Computed example of a mutant assay.
Amino acid sequence: MWQALAFGGVLVGMAGILALAPRDGAQVAVFMPPWAEQGDAMRAAAAARLDVVAVGSNGRVAILAAVDRSGVSRLYASGAVLVADAAIARACLTTEPPKTEQAA
């Protein structure tokens, strides 16, 4: 009986991982570690040469424009702990458009 429960747990876990997986050409959410400084998600996006669509209120999460597999790899190389489908993140986060500096 416990084997069936364990197998069911594995299946549910795999479904969750697949639901979070970023798709080529879709927006993604990048999550930085909890000890990261505010704004690190935007710095990781800049280092990966990707466009920011929205930023989480804590600055450690950002939603990025369409990304391919090499973009996901560059985000991980820039310090991201998780890169997930943006639809999942939008349901859980309060985001705002990125702030841009205005010339005086």
Rank of each mutant, 00 (worst) to 15 (best):
A44M: 03
F31R: 09
A77F: 08
F31T: 10
E37N: 10
L64W: 02
P22A: 04
A29Y: 02
A89W: 06
A46H: 10
R90T: 09
L93W: 10
L82H: 14
A77Q: 13
M14E: 12
A91I: 09
L20E: 09
G16P: 03
S70L: 09
S73G: 11
L82E: 13
L75V: 00
G9L: 09
G8K: 10
G71D: 02
R23Q: 15
V52K: 06
A26Y: 07
L93E: 14
A86E: 04
A15P: 04
V81C: 03
A19Y: 12
F7N: 14
Y76M: 07
V30C: 03
A48H: 01
A80F: 05
Y76V: 01
Y76C: 02
T95V: 13
S70I: 06
S70H: 10
A26R: 13
V12P: 00
G56K: 03
A87H: 09
V55W: 08
G71F: 02
A87T: 14
A66F: 04
T100Q: 13
M32R: 01
G16N: 08
P22R: 02
E96S: 14
V81P: 02
L5D: 11
R74Q: 08
W2F: 12
L20H: 05
A48I: 01
A45L: 04
D68E: 08
G9T: 05
W2G: 13
G8S: 12
I88N: 08
S57L: 14
A104Q: 13
D85S: 08
K99Q: 12
G56C: 03
L82W: 12
Q27T: 10
M1R: 12
D24P: 10
L5H: 11
F7G: 11
A47P: 04
